[in-house]
Design a protein around this nucleic acid. Structure first.
Lengths: 173, 173
DNA sequence: GGGTACATGTAATCAGTTACATGATTTA
DNA sequence: TAAATCATGTAACTGATTACATGTACCC
């Protein structure tokens, strides 16, 4: 059956990564860590469960190594590529979620004294400055290889958000 | 037992809202909708399940109306207030998650033709412009009442992020 | 050759969602 | 008074996490 059985964002993420090249779960994990993982992360075990589900749905095929570790290698099927492309072409109105615990704490900062609130701002500013520096390093390294244009663009957006956070927290200090 | 039995962000969110004033689940729902919900949203049923859990943990107390709807009204306990304050004071290094399906699609836009990618950018730019306008309206309305300073600040951060998204998508068109 | 880090997975649990249900109020 | 909408909840399901487990390769 090639009817789309409720795919989640992680489904498409896996589909997309496998579309760029057949992979084992471990390879997926590494590729996520170096790219999308910066803004959309999850437990590595999801990368074992999800391909299995996609295989059941006929969107991936699995082939196991004959010897040694007998790792499962996943490849995208034509149906998988169709589902992925259809999803990519369809715009979304899903609201953007910015899940930042610091922000959530700030929301309730009226319940603690002002000094503690300021301290929170200071700490979060420091964390985001660190993160920004790390992203900038990654971006600098990736900017050399001009393939992978779009992943680089999402990284650029990540940088913009981090800069906004730094500016925001610093404005509160 | 007042040992902290793994509270989630939603736990603290509920705790924080109830700390600002005893509420029923429905009131929580409404308060979320007009504030934190903009950046941290979830199903309303969570606001029925979560207070119950917090009551078991001794962080809230429940009292039911004697007559009529017998609604459950929740009040924070001293232990609840302690747990909340301790959490508020502790800074976090939890990575910020920016969950935006448009961005995820863009990450894989290399798999579709350039026109489709540009179309995606155009659509997302429009969506974010709309959202930005809505936030600005809310912010304008809230700016009148200068109590609730911190919620207003988080809204300001929300605005910054939306502006960044608009600029980003427009730069791709 | 013992330790440590990398690699590869499975099983159980649970937070949060979806779907359902029904009572109370307003409106037309 | 019918219809819609607001208010209030429960039950079942499941995606994703936590925790566990073990194999392999490198390095000191």
């Amino acid at each position: 059956m090639s009817n789309t059985p409720e795919l989640t964002p992680i489904s498409y993420l896996v589909l997309g990564l496998v579309a760029r090249g057949a992979s084992t779960s471990y390879e997926l994990k590494q590729r996520v860590a170096g790219s999308v993982g910066y803004f959309w992360s999850f437990a590595h075990s999801a990368l074992y469960a999800e391909p299995a589900r996609l295989e059941t749905a006929g969107l991936l095929t699995e082939s196991r190594e004959a010897h040694g570790r007998r790792r499962r290698m996943y490849t995208i099927t034509p149906a998988g590529r169709d589902a992925l492309e259809a999803w990519l072409r369809e715009p979304t109105r899903e609201p953007t979620q910015v899940r930042d615990l610091g922000l959530l704490k700030l929301f309730f900062a009226g319940l603690i004294d002002e000094d503690a609130a300021r301290e929170l701002a200071r700490a979060q500013a420091a964390v985001h400055r660190e993160r920004l520096a790390a992203y900038e390093a990654v971006a600098g390294a990736k900017a050399q290889s001009p393939d992978d244009l779009y992943p680089l663009e999402t990284l650029r957006m990540g940088l913009m958000v981090e800069r906004a956070f730094v500016a925001f927290w610093e404005s509160l200090v």
